[in-house]
């Protein structure tokens, strides 16, 4: 209960410091592996953004934008993992990547284990720098904690 009140307080007395600094930006990459000891992993960016989005599509997203909103939540989870790792954030990201892969099986459920890593992009002077900051545990694809659902079918 105390934890929930702690989470509620920033809503009742908000800081309103949107975009005060442009923090390093996390990118989620995943790899599907066949064995626990597999050393060579092919990393893929999770939900790369499209080349273009039409204005009509943007208008539609004013009322129906589940995938993007889920991606924003995953960005929050990634930021939480970087600041203060929790099992919850790691599980959420693993679960949602797994669901997305399962829904689009042609894009890679060809393995037994799933892992993700976080790369952060930030500016150092005039250069953009990418660093690896976190690597998740291996999740068995048969893990029963993943309870179905997800948005990838739309």
């Amino acid at each position: 209960m105390l934890n929930i009140l702690k989470l509620l307080l920033p809503a009742m007395i908000p800081a309103w410091n949107f975009f005060d600094i442009i923090a390093p930006s996390p990118r989620i990459q995943y790899a599907v592996l066949n064995g626990k000891d597999e050393t060579h992993a092919e990393w893929h960016e999770f939900r790369p953004r499209p080349a273009r989005v039409s204005f009509l599509r943007m208008l539609g997203r004013m009322v129906w934008n589940p995938l993007w909103n889920e991606s924003l939540f995953l960005t929050s989870c990634a930021e939480r993992l970087i600041e203060q790792p929790t099992q919850h954030s790691e599980d959420e990201i693993l679960k949602r990547i797994y669901t997305a892969l399962r829904r689009n099986a042609d894009r890679g459920l060809d393995g037994k284990y799933l892992r993700f890593r976080l790369q952060v992009l930030h500016r150092a002077g005039e250069r953009l720098v990418q660093e690896r900051v976190f690597e998740s545990r291996l999740m068995a694809m048969s893990d029963s904690t993943v309870n179905g659902g997800g948005h990838e079918s739309r």
Binding site: I22, S25, R49, A51, R61, W68, S71, T75, L121, H122
Partner: peptide
Amino acid sequence: FSAYPVSES
């Protein structure tokens, strides 16, 4: 480089 722009363009 932030996570917000909805497209590469």
